[in-house]
Design a protein around this nucleic acid. Sequence first.
DNA 1: GAAAAAGTATTAAATATTTAATGCTGTTAT
DNA 2: ATAACAGCATTAAATATTTAATACTTTTTC
Lengths: 229, 229
Amino acid sequence: MHPNINKNEFKWLRRISMKFINRRDFIRIERSSVSLAFKKGETILKQGEQPSHVVYLERGIVKFSYQNEAGKNLILTIVAAPKILGGANLFYKDNNLFSFVAVDDCDVVLIDAQVLLSVMENNAKFSIMLFQLASGMFKKSILNFISLAYKQKEGRIADIIIYLSAEVYNSRDFTLTLTRRELAEFAGCSTENVIMTLSKWQNENVIAAEGKQLQIIDMERLKHISKIA
Amino acid sequence: MHPNINKNEFKWLRRISMKFINRRDFIRIERSSVSLAFKKGETILKQGEQPSHVVYLERGIVKFSYQNEAGKNLILTIVAAPKILGGANLFYKDNNLFSFVAVDDCDVVLIDAQVLLSVMENNAKFSIMLFQLASGMFKKSILNFISLAYKQKEGRIADIIIYLSAEVYNSRDFTLTLTRRELAEFAGCSTENVIMTLSKWQNENVIAAEGKQLQIIDMERLKHISKIA
DNA sequence: GAAAAAGTATTAAATATTTAATGCTGTTAT
DNA sequence: ATAACAGCATTAAATATTTAATACTTTTTC
């Protein structure tokens, strides 16, 4: 699919794993893994496929993309490196519920699920640590979903802007790697809604939006909108 | 809080655990647990509290209830016994994200989280099994949320009716233990919407609704509504 | 480098959803 | 027993959201 480009570094994963598993097991995982680079827009793992690997995202931004029965694309969440993706898939033997798509150029390591599972079976604390990581991500998605499911347009859009700032770009002034359409797929509304809402907030001096550049000027106001809408 | 009423039976939990942990560990868990009975409407575990126990639901139906910043009640999901609740809470040390409220009379066993965790630390396979259980529940909630977040009213209501039939009451003809208001909190719409939609489907012979009694007459139709709406 | 495609933006009309007002029914508390 | 309350139901008006039509800009493709 893609050439083996970057070195198998595993920096973050190594740091968090070394407390729990020995060097031999770590090397076993490393040996059975493949490093790949994905360009913006490429699919790392496809919805419906049998999950044979766990994805370790080393660099870049990834969207969790879901296509519903009507063929409509939805974005469940967006995450930035470093992160382990597909934890739930690993432990629940079923087809992938959604796709992982690169939103930015990404470096990922595909870890063989069988090998990882066999290391886990001999290292309870390592398993629990991975479980905790997955639970933390789960918790964040739940909050995202609560916003999506029970708030209306403005509250949802405010929430994703705050989320992107806090969890993905780590700044109040960032260059969006998502299109307005993708923002809409994430916020569960139409593209027009996103565009109009951003324009409105621009006029009200809540944000400054110039093409892909987005700056949150009045975070308090945005949080207030998130609360009331 | 509540008197210790029923015997500490653990039937289902014992069955699924015995493959993984020895009798001594199981008894350790059992000894540190408390059996309680909750009446319809009572809160088993409250949003915002520190999670010190994992809840094993032995009998009854429980709603996962969330109160948002605006004070509005939302139902995240509804589950029937037997089931382990609060897996994610166990492994992610943070306050409870939501409450568990009895929707029916319930028998539950509160398992001491510290004891369970220490047993898990010595039994990797047991940990992985619990992880798999939690992942399965996670996956179902995700599908619920996708429906809530990206479908409109009729599709969402169709989905929760199908869900209740398949996962909670295990029949196409059941006595609702939820009020219309609770259905609305689950579907993320107003009570009026639920009432009107059910009336409409009643007229169209998709369902038969007589007070608390609900029968799905035309499941195909309902699934079709779920798809297109 | 030009043509085509995708992204951004705005508006008006059509549709969906919530809110508010009202009445009926059955249950609970005193 | 009855007043008070919660649940169920219906309608109309107010509000929110999507769809459709159109235009301009930027990016991609040949």
